[in-house]
């Protein structure tokens, strides 16, 4: 069956974003909007949480907001 999703929430996709620049949880959620991935809100939250725990990115505060980032 054809999928309408044009974005996939994968560890590799998250890694690429976090190497490019530090992002908040909200920034990441914006990259993987449910209407683009076809996932539910709950699935998105659960999968993204698992991926972030596995990637264990560095953290820093920018403008009082926690940002995640990775270095290559």
């Amino acid at each position: 069956t054809p999928s309408s999703s044009d974005v996939q929430l994968t560890e590799e996709a998250v890694r690429r974003y976090l190497i490019r620049k530090p992002m908040t949880t909200k920034d990441l959620l914006k990259k993987f909007q449910t209407k683009r991935t076809g996932l539910s809100s709950e699935q998105t939250v659960n999968v993204l949480a698992q991926i972030l725990k596995r990637l264990n990115p560095e953290r820093k505060n920018i403008n009082d907001k926690m940002h995640f980032y990775l270095t290559e």
Binding site: T24, T25, K26, L29, K30, S41, E42, T44, V45, N46, L48, A49, L52, K53, N56, R59, M66
Partner: peptide, 20 residues
């Protein structure tokens, strides 16, 4: 909507509580 985004961000941060 932005309120849904806020809710999702809050849920994600709760999931990551120990980690963050």
């Amino acid at each position: 909507s932005s309120s849904e985004a806020d809710e999702m961000a809050a849920a994600l941060e709760a999931e990551l509580h120990d980690f963050m």
